[in-house]
């Protein structure tokens, strides 16, 4: 057993456990915390795969940015009665069966897709240099689109979340 396998096993089990915890914890604050661990685990996985830049971005943007947003959202709306709202067991059952069936199918597919790819190629993954060049040459269009998209999101989110008068308040 190589070091890779050991590390992967450890990280993957951590990810799997925390993902399950996200789903099953009753309190939304705890779910957010477990999601944080999941995301950190995924970024570790990227480091393990040799994609340092993606891993770093995952840490900075996801863990540092998105998760903070989510936690803020939780806190802003966290009143006691909403923390633990739950659905009926039957719905749990149906969703669980469907999800497991899908998982089985996807694992089958994974085994088929992974055939013959038992070891990674010798050459390392391209680092941030080739990525940067790629973004400004071959992938310029998606890059620009995503930039404009971000601008739109910025404006849209600011517009949507701005303080508004409550309905029934004094208008005009």
């Amino acid at each position: 057993m190589s070091l890779d396998v050991v590390l992967f096993t450890a990280i993957a089990s951590a990810i799997a456990f925390s993902a399950l915890a996200v789903v099953f914890s009753r309190n939304i604050v705890r779910s957010a915390l477990w999601l944080l661990f999941t995301l950190i685990g995924v970024s570790l996985l990227y480091f393990l795969l040799g994609a340092e830049f993606v891993g770093a971005t995952q840490l900075i943007v996801y863990v540092g940015g998105t998760m903070v947003l989510v936690v803020f959202g939780v806190m802003l709306t966290a009143q006691q009665q909403f923390l633990k709202i739950r659905i009926r067991p039957q719905e749990w059952l149906v969703a669980g069966i469907l999800a497991s069936a899908l998982f089985v199918l996807l694992v089958t597919t994974s085994f088929h897709l992974g055939e013959g790819k038992n070891s990674p190629p010798a050459e390392p993954m391209p680092g941030s240099g080739p990525l940067g060049v790629g973004f400004l040459t071959q992938y310029l269009l998606p890059f620009e689109i995503i930039s404009v998209h971000l601008l739109v999101v910025l404006i849209g989110a600011a517009y949507l979340a701005r303080a508004k008068r409550r309905p029934g308040g004094n208008r005009d």
Binding site: E91, A95, L98, A101, L102, L105, T108, T109, H112
Partner: peptide, 22 residues
């Protein structure tokens, strides 16, 4: 969640067909 459930069933069907065919 009803919508998502329906979506899951549909995805399941698609993946099943995919696996069966390929």
């Amino acid at each position: 969640r009803r919508y998502v459930t329906v979506l899951m069933v549909a995805t399941l069907a698609f993946v099943a067909v995919f696996v069966a065919v390929y």
